[in-house]
Deep mutational scan, measured.
Amino acid sequence: PDFTLHWNGITIHFKGIDEEQFRHLRELLDRGVSLEELEELAKELIK
């Protein structure tokens, strides 16, 4: 499924991740993950 997340004025689209992965990403963003960390995470998910 696809998810869209609005965070700090940025709209991020996640394609092909499951709800569990999306929930994990939201928790990280709510905790204050940096954009660099988010990019690293995205690379991991894409593999």
Rank of each mutant, 00 (worst) to 15 (best):
H24K: 13
E37C: 04
T4I: 10
K15L: 14
I10K: 09
Q21L: 11
F22E: 04
K43E: 11
E19L: 07
E37R: 13
V33Y: 12
F22S: 04
T4H: 15
G32Y: 07
F22Q: 04
L25T: 00
R31V: 10
R31E: 08
F22G: 08
L38G: 01
L25G: 00
E40M: 13
I10Y: 01
G9Q: 02
H6D: 09
N8L: 04
G16E: 14
D2W: 07
Q21V: 09
R31Q: 13
L5F: 04
L38S: 00
G32F: 09
T11M: 04
D18T: 15
I10C: 07
E20H: 15
D18C: 08
H6E: 14
L45W: 08
K43S: 08
I12C: 03
L5T: 01
E27L: 10
V33S: 13
R26Q: 13
T4R: 04
G32P: 02
K15Q: 15
D30G: 09
F3I: 03
I17V: 06
F3W: 09
I46L: 12
D30A: 13
G32E: 04
H13M: 08
L29N: 02
I12R: 01
E19D: 09
F14K: 00
A42S: 07
F22T: 03
R31W: 09
H6G: 02
K15T: 15
I46W: 01
K43V: 07
E39N: 11
K47C: 09
R31H: 11
E27N: 13
L5Q: 00
G9F: 01
Q21H: 07
F22P: 00
K47Q: 11
E19M: 05
E36G: 10
G9V: 01
I17P: 02
G32C: 06
L35Y: 09
L38R: 00
T11K: 07
E27Y: 05
P1F: 14
A42L: 15
N8K: 06
L41C: 03
Q21S: 12
G9K: 01
E40H: 12
I12V: 10
I46H: 11
G32R: 03
K43H: 10
I17N: 02
G9M: 00
D2V: 15
S34N: 05
I17G: 03
L38Y: 02
L35T: 04
K15D: 15
R26I: 15
L41N: 02
R23S: 09
K43A: 12
D2A: 07
T11G: 01
E39G: 08
